[in-house]
Nucleic acid binder design. Sequence first.
DNA 1: GCCAACGTTGGC
DNA 2: GCCAACGTTGGC
Length: 154
Amino acid sequence: MAYWLVKTEPSEWSIDDFAAEPGRAVPWDGVRNYQARNFLLRMSRGDSVLVYHSSCRRIGVAGIARVVREAYPDPSQFDGASPYFDEKSTREAPRWVAVDLQFERRLSALIPLARIRECPGLEEMPLVKKGNRLSVMPVTAGQWERILSLEENS
DNA sequence: GCCAACGTTGGC
DNA sequence: GCCAACGTTGGC
């Protein structure tokens, strides 16, 4: 059992969208960064995922999802009508993968990025490092515990 | 809207 | 293989 964090712009897909269809396996597609892709490849069914809202008014961790399908070729890379189309990708050798995530729960209150920055023990998260742009990242068990303790203290 | 930081591209 | 130019990310 491993822990992860994924970023999403809530205007595209938010924790509310997850909550609206709690039983659905939601394809987490459109990841077009090799480092992030490599983390998707390492996800296992049953892993827990923090859902983080970025580029919005209330930035922070909003909820938790679960991996329900491990990495498979991201269909959007073959779709000429998709913004995620990649002309250099082939079905024989796909470049990009998706996983499926399922809603687990909302946090009782969103944990703002500023609080995560302040929290001792979370300094090493790529999320809070200067210039970070990684949209899929691993979370250690200790970091997971600390983040969820911020939920209790809110 | 601004801008720093980063990844990718492409000429050489 | 280097590196400048460019486009994108993402907090503020």
